[in-house]
């Protein structure tokens, strides 16, 4: 058991593991919605789009989280605008907006002289997490969990059948933007720990793995935080012994989960030939 306890002797490891688990929970929860709705690219878009917000907030001396949050909202609103007001499809709109914002962030980054490390923004710095950040991450995680408990079923209905949601009098507009807000919040909260590139994989992999396991949406919402946080723990421990960066190691753990689910599904399809689209 010493291998289990050894990393915990170090404060930075305790902080890193806690931060990664806390950051993984809201992102994994949201991955269920994004993957099922075919919005995987939205997570991608939002996580890239926060970069200019971070750099600008730094230059203006504002909290980095605030800048990232506003940039995320701007990205979501811009995508929505282009999607509704033009003939372009939504994925094209996302591609335009997020690559544009990401590029803007990179340019700003080289113009604004800062002691920010681009690598830390992109890939996170789990080992440098401080206790104050842990509280911030914990607060976001707690509020996302509460919001999911309260509005989770409304979001499910809206994603599944927006027309029915409207004929039942649900506030569809507020629900849509509310979802984008907690998406931005979760990405931003994960920024310091896992970085924007890795946040993206937390927004896709747990949901994708569970879709392969063919479980219902209700079970997905229970299982995805378990998948995400277990990957965070496994990745954290492995990184300690492999002396690797924790966040990418966590993504590898999620990749293994995905591959196992894929193998299981292939095996099941092989045993019971599936009638695709029939009867």
């Amino acid at each position: 058991m010493t291998w289990l306890l050894e990393p915990l002797q170090f404060e930075f490891m305790r902080y890193a593991l806690t931060a990664m688990v806390l950051a993984a929970i809201p992102l994994s929860l949201l991955s269920c919605f994004l993957v099922v709705r075919g919005w995987a690219l939205m997570g991608d878009a939002l996580s890239h789009a926060v970069l200019p917000g971070v750099v600008l907030a730094y230059a203006l001396g504002l909290p980095l989280l605030l800048g990232a949050f506003l940039a995320g909202l701007f990205c979501a609103a811009a995508v929505g605008f282009i999607d509704q007001k033009t003939k372009l499809k939504e994925d094209t709109a996302m591609g335009v907006v997020f690559t544009g914002l990401f590029a803007l962030g990179l340019v700003l980054f080289s113009v604004v002289h800062s002691n920010l490390h681009l690598n830390h923004i992109l890939f996170g710095d789990a080992l440098g997490v401080e206790s104050e950040q842990l509280w911030q991450i914990g607060a976001v995680t707690a509020s996302v969990i509460v919001l999911m408990l309260v509005f989770g079923r409304d979001w499910q209905l809206q994603l599944f059948d927006p027309i029915q949601a409207r004929t039942m009098g649900l506030p569809v507009g507020r629900l849509h933007y509310g979802l984008l807000v907690i998406l931005s919040m979760s990405i931003v909260s994960a920024l310091s720990t896992v970085g924007i590139i890795i946040a993206m994989s937390l927004l896709i992999l747990p949901g994708a793995t569970l879709v392969l396991m063919r479980v219902s949406m209700r079970k997905m919402l229970w299982l995805s935080p378990i998948l995400g946080s277990s990957a965070a723990l496994i990745g954290g421990y492995l990184s300690f012994y492999l002396d690797s960066a924790p966040a990418p190691t966590m993504v590898l753990a999620m990749g293994v989960q995905f591959c196992l689910a894929l193998l299981a599904q292939q095996y099941r399809d092989y045993r019971v030939p599936k009638l695709k689209g029939a009867p």
């Binding site: 099922v36 079923r153 409304d154 499910q156 209905l157 994603l159 599944f160 059948d161 029915q164 039942m168 009098g169 649900l170 879709v211 063919r214 479980v215 219902s216 949406m217 209700r218 997905m220």
Partner: peptide, 15 residues
């Protein structure tokens, strides 16, 4: 969408 027949009909009760 990963919902069962029961889940869909239950959505009618949300209101």
């Amino acid at each position: 969408f990963p919902v069962s027949v029961n889940d869909v009909v239950m959505m009618g009760r949300y209101g």
